[in-house]
Amino acid sequence: MKRRDAIKRMGYAAGFVVITPTILGILNSCTTEVAKWTPKFLMPEQAQFLIKLVNVFLPKTSLPSATDVNVPEFIDRYVDEIFTIEDQQIFKAAFSNTMTKISMHQGLEILDEVEDFQIKAFLDEHLMVKDEVDIEREANPDFKGKTTSEFLNTIKTMTIQAYLTNEKIGEDVLAYEPIPGAYYCGDLKSLTDGKSWSLD
């Protein structure tokens, strides 16, 4: 749970990046090629939920969806290879807890059947945006784990970072210049047509 408040500013400075260049098509994804992805860290039901969740954050438009660019695989590998053992345990516990909560929230016996609109309803209640405060955290300031809101925001941040450091997004969607050859200031519009550089 959360409420709007002017106290807390949220940061999006998490420093992770990356992904594999292969195209991964899974479940709701519109890609036709179905590659096999065996999660390294996540339980199969967690992986399935993650696939739905990341596509709610970044659905398919004229640009690829999160699953089109392998975001779930990235997150799974990232937690497996980069997180400390302690952070893995926190992540795992928060994931289970969140899945239980959303099932109860939506009155679902099996989370496999969760629909996008149900995920959105849950996010509306728990995902924190700028200037909102986490009531669960306020009630338990010393809790070492992640609250539901913190967990959802972590997934949102990881989804965005994974998306932006994908090869297709980095080279074809964002402004990409591997060898700039110079450094100078200029107008955003004329330099990149308003987009970010993919390399910084």
């Binding site: 990356v18 290879e81 450091t165 591997p178």
Partner: peptide, 19 residues
């Protein structure tokens, strides 16, 4: 020297093993 972030299996983050 010529690798982009997506050329690393986990981006540029330090792996647990390295840490």
């Amino acid at each position: 020297a010529h690798k982009d972030p997506w050329d690393f299996p986990n981006g540029e983050s330090a792996t647990r093993e390295t840490k």
